[in-house]
Nucleic acid binder design. Structure first.
Lengths: 215, 215
DNA sequence: CTTCAATGTAGACAGTGGAAACACAGTTGT
DNA sequence: ACAACTGTGTTTCCACTGTCTACATTGAAG
């Protein structure tokens, strides 16, 4: 697909100067539009206007490129979660904060379906610790949130990570089902609501319930 | 039509006689061993000892093969669930039945990681209704189980499907996290336990603390 | 026996990821 | 100033893949 650029600098310098990021942004667009399978290194090179072997200088492998995409994906997801959580920091009640975080997560996953699928793919480079590290960072916020809920008495005591995994997994599963077409996207919000309220009921302390803040 | 193969495997006849199933079984092994990405039609043909274009007679497309694999995967998953549920039919208490089903599901997903990832992949043929149909069949058992729980009074009333999706999604997410390496496989059983007991607590009838409110 | 549809074969094509050798340009050491 | 070095992009080549088209072989139906 040769695209004639009527742009200013018709003569391209020998060195692109920014190939790595150009590749990443082009790859992300391609990923969104055609999925990871259809993502071709040569296509990207063509689109950017560089020789087909140039990407190799920045990504040893096709998988290396995909891993990098997954990594930035987790970083963005983490930022999204962080934003959703700091926005309602302190003021709001705990259930609302959980719902905000979960909802932000779910919408990210559905709006970036292909990227999200790539992020959760099992096939990363053996030494792709960066990916799992980025994933852990994003996931850690869920753990923190759980710990916060336990501190406020909204959740029963226990390993925050164990409980966080459950919540994380539930949202993860819902979005996967939506993304795979098993569930219509219009049901996403409703399911998230149900999931969160069930989670809160299932993980709150037993016995005399001391409501965090009466209502 | 059905052609009976002469038992002993002597001289290979011009027609393989059973190529389709041979392809599927070989593909399933390859999928397990090397993942869906590495699955090559030509490789399969070579392995079976047939020309590289022969598979085309049975699967129009590479994706058609993968779709068929996903479909049989859902069928097997459905059978596994069914077995787990009928085994403890009636006798056992509801929570145990839920735990059995969920555990069976989780182990299937982890023991057939590549297949399971393929099953949950978003990229099926546009007209691959068979896949989603098979998926719905497997999922339907979860809905039935929920309905059973509601009938027995173990779960609060409501749309069984909506609640079933939550449970299904939770297990789905846990297994995905395990399969992607985010969580060690040794934690699977513990997480399943936690998830099920939280689910049962969260979905059982109780004093209405927070009725489902819209948005 | 002839015909026919199903199934398998052979060859060609475009496209891909990857490797090697080479070309250009900015930086650095002297 | 200038030569060497290093990072980056280019060219050329290879093995391999999925897919297409024309042809071969077969068993079964008419």
């Amino acid at each position: 697909m040769l695209v004639l650029m009527p742009g200013p600098a018709e003569q391209r310098p020998y060195h692109h100067g920014n190939l790595r990021t150009a590749l990443l942004t082009a790859a992300e667009r391609g990923l969104r539009e055609n999925g990871a399978d259809q993502l071709s290194l040569r296509d990207l090179a063509r689109e950017i206007g560089v020789s087909h072997a140039a990407p190799r200088r920045h990504f040893a492998d096709r998988r290396a490129l995909l891993d990098a995409l997954a990594e930035t994906g987790f970083a963005r997801l983490g930022a999204t979660l962080h934003a959703a959580l700091t926005e309602s920091d302190g003021e709001r009640e705990f259930p609302t904060r959980v719902r905000d975080a979960v909802s932000a997560y779910a919408h990210f996953a559905v709006e970036n379906a292909a990227l999200y699928e790539l992020m959760n793919s099992s096939k990363h480079h053996p030494g792709a610790t960066l990916v799992t590290q980025a994933a852990a960072a994003a996931f850690g916020q869920m753990t923190d949130l759980i710990a916060e809920g336990q501190a406020h008495g909204a959740l029963e005591q226990g390993d925050p990570e164990e409980v966080g995994i459950i919540l994380y997994a539930t949202v993860q599963g819902i979005t996967t089902m939506v993304n795979s077409g098993m569930i219509g996207a219009e049901r996403l919000d409703g399911l998230v609501d149900t999931a969160v309220s069930q989670f809160l009921r299932g993980a709150r302390p037993l016995g005399p319930q001391r409501s965090p803040s009466g209502r």
